[in-house]
Nucleic acid binder design. Structure first.
Lengths: 361, 361
DNA sequence: GTGAAAGCGCTAACAC
DNA sequence: GTGTTAGCGCTTTCAC
C-alpha cells in the first residue's frame, strides 16, 4: 500500500474516538454500556429504539451521550448473526450498463428496499451461468431475506439452481410453474401506443413489429389490435411490418412506409422510431405534419431529444423494481398465477399530430 | 403473505436437504462435522481450503460428502463476525440510471471486486446528503473493507462525514487534501479528439466547449491547444465556441459554424455532436464530406447509431471502476498527489474524413 | 493430522 | 425499569 494509502484511516489507526475506534480496537456496545453505566441490554434497546422497552429518560440520555462520545457504530454482522437473518435483499441482474433499463430497475428496488429498512445486495451476471451461481451463493451466504432475479428486457427465463433456496421473485422476466414475477403490461402498452394515434384521428396506422421473438413482439401487437377493434378499425396485414429493433431496422421499414397511405406509425421502440425519422426526412416528409410517429421504451436520451421530441410509451422499469421488492417482502400480493403486470404509461411529446387531409406517405 | 408467497421456499419449510436446511433449521458447520465424524475445526479447514492445514485425504473426502449430502452453505455472517471484517467493498454512487456512465463504473468495480474475492455493496444516493450518510452508516455497520465514492460526471466533491471512518478512494471525482482519486485524463482526451482531425489533414478546427464549469471544460480545451501547438497551429479564439452541453446547444453552435471556414469540429460531447449533425443537415452540409465531426463520451446509443456513426473519444468509466477497487485494495498505487488519471481512448467511426478542398462551412 | 475451547459483538429470554 | 445470561455459527489458537 502507498504512503497515501497508509495515511488514510485504516483499521488499526490510533484514530480519535470520533472515528469509531479507540487505540486500535473497535468500540463495542459493551464499551458504551460501561461508559453509560448501564447494561448492554439497555444500550441495545436504546440503539434499536425498541418499542415496548421501558428505559428511564436518564439512562436513555446517558447511553446517547456515550454513543456520541465514543463514536460508536453498531456492528450489523453481529446483529445479523444472532437474529439468524440479515436485512439484505439480493438483486441479481443480467446487465447493468447496457441500457439504462436495468439501472432503473435497480434504482426502484433500492429505493423501496431502503424505505422498508432493507439493503440491496446487487450482483451483475452478464447472463453468465457461472457468475449467477456465484452471486446466488454469495447472497445465500449472507442470509438474504430473499432474492430478486431480473433481466434488462422482458423475457422468459429458466431459474438458476440455488434461487429456490431463498424466497424469490422475478422482475421483468417470468418462468413456468407459478413463480411470482413482476412484468410490464405489454398488451396495455400496445394499446396505449395505438390510442395516441387514434385519439388524433388517425385511421390508417402502420405497426412496426420486431423480428425478435419475445413477449413484446407477441403482446404489443395484440394491444394494437384491441385498440383498433375498439375504434371499429381492422388491422391491414400489409401495415404490420416486421423489422430489426434498431435504427437500421427503422430506417428500412420507414422507407417501405412510403406509398402505403399511412398517416401514423407505431414503432417497436424508440430506436426504430429514430430510424423512421431518418427515412422520412430523406423522403422529404416531416413529423408530425406528414406522418405521426409513436415510439416505445421512453429511452430518455433518444426520445426527449429527437427533432421533434418523440411521443412514446414508457416501460415501467423503476416501478418494476419497486413492486418486485414489495411482492418479495409480502407488502403486496401477486394475482393468482403469479404474474403482476405493471402498466406502461404513454408519454406525450411532439411527434403525434392530427393526420394531414391528403394522404402523405 | 399471499398463498403464492407461502408456497414458495420460505425459511421454515421442510425442504429436503438439497435446499440447505433440514426440518426447518439451517444446516450448520456443526451438522457437517457430526455427519462426517470430524471436528468443526477440520470442516472449517476443508471448506476454506486452508493452506498449511494438514487434513487426511479420508477426512477431507468425508467432509466433502457430508457438505454435499446436507446441502450445507457456509454462513458468511458468522465468519465475518469472528474475523472482524467482511469481504464487502462499499460503492456509493450519486446516480445509477441517469446515464449509462455510473452503470459502467459499477460494472467495472464489481468485476474487479469479484476477481479479487470481494463483494460490492452498492448504494445510490441521488446526490442527497441524507441518503449519503445513511448509506455510509450501513456500509460501516457491515464492516466493509473500504469505500469507493463515485460520481457520474467528473467533478470536485466535498467528502461526506463518515467516509473517513473507512479506507476510501474517489472515483470520477476528486477532493482537496490528497485524497486518493481515480479520474479520466481530460487533457489527453482533448488531445485525442483533436488529433483525430489533425491526422486527416484538417487545420481549421472549431472547438465546441461546454458552458458548465468543470474539469472537462477546463482541461479538454487544454489538450486541444496542446495538439494544435504540436501540429504548429494556433487556436483561433473565434473557433472556440461555448454552448450548452446538449443537442440544443450543439444545434445552435452548429448554425454558427457556417461561414467560419471550418472543416472539422470537436464537440464537447456526443449529444452536442448530434445537434451539430442536425444543424449541418439543415444547411445542406454532409458529414464528413463537408465537415468532419468528433464527439466525446462514446455514448453508445448515440454515437454508434448516428448517421454517419460518430467518431468520438471514450470516457473510461468501466476502467475507472476497475482502478478504483485496485487502488482501494492496495493492488495498485496512486501517483504522488493522489490523482490517478486514466486515458480516454479515441473511437474511430465514420464522421471524420479528409477535409474538402474547398472550404465548405 | 485432528480436536477442544474460547470467543467475535450482539440480541433476547427471563429474572429481579 | 434494568441487568444477567446464554448463545447465534464460525474461526483460530493451542494441545495432543
Amino acid at each position: 500500500m502507498s504512503e497515501v494509502h497508509g495515511a488514510t484511516a485504516v483499521p488499526g489507526d490510533a484514530t480519535p474516538s470520533a472515528a469509531g475506534r479507540v487505540g486500535g480496537a473497535r468500540v463495542t456496545l459493551r464499551d458504551v454500556s460501561r461508559l453509560a453505566g448501564v447494561s448492554t441490554t439497555t444500550v441495545s434497546h436504546v440503539i434499536n429504539n425498541k418499542v415496548g422497552a421501558r428505559i428511564g429518560d436518564d439512562a436513555r440520555r446517558r447511553v446517547r451521550e456515550a454513543v456520541e462520545a465514543l463514536g460508536y457504530r453498531p456492528n450489523a454482522t453481529a446483529a445479523n448473526l444472532v437474529r439468524g437473518q440479515s436485512s439484505f435483499i439480493g438483486l441479481v441482474a443480467d446487465s447493468i450498463a447496457t441500457t439504462p433499463f436495468a439501472g432503473q430497475i435497480i434504482r426502484g428496488a433500492q429505493d423501496e428496499a431502503w424505505r422498508l429498512g432493507y439493503t440491496l445486495l446487487i450482483a451483475n451476471t452478464e447472463d453468465n451461468a457461472n457468475a449467477e451461481a456465484e452471486a446466488l451463493g454469495m447472497m445465500l451466504a449472507h442470509q438474504v431475506q430473499g432474492i430478486l432475479f431480473s433481466t434488462w428486457y422482458h423475457r422468459e427465463v429458466t431459474l438458476p439452481a440455488g434461487l429456490s433456496e431463498a424466497d424469490h421473485v422475478l422482475v421483468n422476466c417470468y418462468a413456468t410453474g407459478g413463480v411470482r414475477a413482476v412484468v410490464p403490461d405489454e398488451v396495455g402498452g400496445g394499446r396505449a401506443a395505438t390510442e395516441l394515434l387514434l385519439a388524433q384521428g388517425h385511421r390508417r396506422i402502420a405497426f412496426l413489429n420486431t423480428t425478435t421473438p419475445s413477449p413484446a413482439r407477441k403482446r404489443r401487437i395484440e394491444g394494437h389490435r384491441q385498440a383498433m377493434a375498439a375504434a371499429g378499425l381492422e388491422v391491414d396485414p400489409e401495415l404490420v411490418i416486421d423489422t430489426a429493433p434498431d435504427q437500421e431496422g427503422g430506417f428500412v421499414a420507414g422507407q417501405r412506409l412510403a406509398g402505403l397511405g399511412v398517416t401514423g406509425v407505431c414503432c417497436h421502440n424508440d430506436r426504430v422510431a429514430m430510424g423512421v425519422y431518418d427515412a422520412l426526412r430523406e423522403r422529404g416528409l416531416t413529423v408530425p405534419e406528414d406522418v405521426s410517429v409513436v415510439g416505445f421504451d421512453n429511452q430518455e436520451v433518444i426520445a426527449a431529444h429527437l427533432r421533434p421530441p418523440l411521443s412514446t410509451v414508457a416501460l415501467p422499469h423503476y416501478e418494476l423494481g419497486v413492486r418486485g421488492v414489495r411482492v418479495l417482502m409480502g407488502v403486496e400480493e401477486c394475482p393468482a398465477g403469479g404474474l403482476l403486470r405493471v402498466p406502461c404509461p404513454p408519454v406525450v411529446r411532439a411527434s403525434v399530430g392530427p393526420p394531414a387531409t391528403r394522404t402523405s406517405a
